[in-house]
Design a protein around this nucleic acid. Structure first.
Lengths: 166, 166
DNA sequence: CACAAATATTTTAGGTTTGAAATATTTTCA
DNA sequence: TGAAAATATTTCAAACCTAAAATATTTGTG
């Protein structure tokens, strides 16, 4: 459980919190701060330069990686948002002609969502610009720090990975 | 601007992206992933254990740090959300009796929001539990990695700090 | 002083998000 | 086979969130 002396102590005495748990809280608040700041900047760029929204861009990005399409449930798991949420965003992207819903052979409950030719073209162009925006926002992030960041965050991700069924 | 050779090259040739910009994009996606995962877990805890929401908790936390209260605009800046957003959340917390709006002497446009006694008591208890949740979710994060994370993220924050007027 | 500009907040319209309930379909198994 | 359980998705109500417009008030300036 990765406890230091003062944390073990706190288990017996009740309510105190350890230095380590305070450091972790600070780390979390800092993650949240950066995440909100960057997301806000990107949202603004998406709106003014691309006339779209982050959630829509995220869906296109997921579908661009899976060129054969994804089920609604795969999409929602991949983006870590609820099923109902994906429904609305997909509806709007379908209305814009960037994606289509395709029925699934042998399972009439499900449908697969794929990019249209227009959606593929649109996203391919925008992805490069988007990468440029991100790189500018992270201008002070050296290659070494980027790697360190990724390593530390992956550790956290893996620890909190949902246990998969089999 | 922190460019390497291939990035300088790309400026002249057009559309390619450097290894560094790709590393930064990966770092950003990883931040986003962790942020969403942790936020989801905390939201769930807030709902089931505290019968409240993250945004409300965030407002209480800000007001707990500023015991004399904050203006609406200070709150929205501190939480990095829009003014209109804060209005709605504050309305609900007022309805719950956890905070109050106090008129500001000599400025009838503004109002100050403060914790009530009940709000203060409520938050003080919950903050400790919340810190415990965070520490568990970051169980694999060592003290050294927490410090490294904070350092790197602070760098990014500062680079993207809004230039203040004077 | 008058009145334009600035400031603080709320309102509004539209989109995003969730969790739970509803719908439709498929699978399981007695 | 045929009902119950499981699965895939949509619908729904409530909350969150933003940008822009509206409202109210204060400040600055000729």
């Amino acid at each position: 459980m990765n406890m230091n002396k003062s944390e073990r102590l706190s288990e017996t005495t009740g309510n105190e919190t350890s230095d380590l748990s305070k450091a972790r809280l600070r780390a979390w608040l800092q993650i949240l701060k950066v995440s909100r700041k960057i997301e806000g900047e990107l949202r603004e760029k998406m709106r003014t330069e691309f006339n779209t929204t982050l959630p829509r861009f995220d869906v296109l990005a997921a579908l661009y990686r899976e060129r054969d399409g994804m089920r609604m449930s795969e999409l929602s798991k991949s983006l870590m948002v609820s099923n109902g949420n994906v429904t609305g965003i997909v509806d709007r992207l379908v209305a814009e002609g960037l994606i289509v819903r395709v029925p699934v052979e042998n399972d009439r409950r499900a449908s697969i969502v794929r990019l249209t030719a227009a959606g593929e073209k649109d996203f391919a162009e925008r992805a490069l610009v988007h990468e440029g925006w991100v790189s500018e926002l992270f201008d002070d992030l050296s290659s070494g720090d980027a790697d360190a960041l990724i390593r530390i965050l992956r550790n956290i991700s893996h620890h909190n990975e949902a246990p998969h069924h089999d």
